[in-house]
Amino acid sequence: MRPDNETCVQRARFFFYFFEKKDWQPGETPPLDAIIKSKTVGPEAIRNLNKFLSTRLERIAEMMEILLRAHDDWAITGKKDYVLMETETYDFTNAIRVLEQHGFHDDEFILKVEYTRKWGVL
């Protein structure tokens, strides 16, 4: 198929959650588990959260920078507990590749892909 013969528009949506990763590696525990609804929140749990968030937010910022360097058309929306980066003009496979090249793995973001008809397609 010719590259200009596309019949759909792809929307790639990268969700960067502040408090969570998609998969927790062996030895890692979600830092909020020891805080939310806990009757015995200790200072260590807060320090753990601080440490996790420092690392996590830095990683998110780096991923955002990489994607922004790779492509200039992103809609970026801030939410209470995540940042959403969306684009209709950059293929999600390219975005994943560039993140992987910089040492980021697919457990550090959630990707959703949406397709819509291109204008005029029945």
Binding site: C8, Q10, Y115, V121
Partner: peptide, 27 residues
Amino acid sequence: GVSASIAIGGAVKAEKHHVSIAISLVI
């Protein structure tokens, strides 16, 4: 038809040119 191709294409994260081909064949 096309609605299903784009919905399933997104759900299974099919590549863009594959979704385009599916739409062309439906039409």
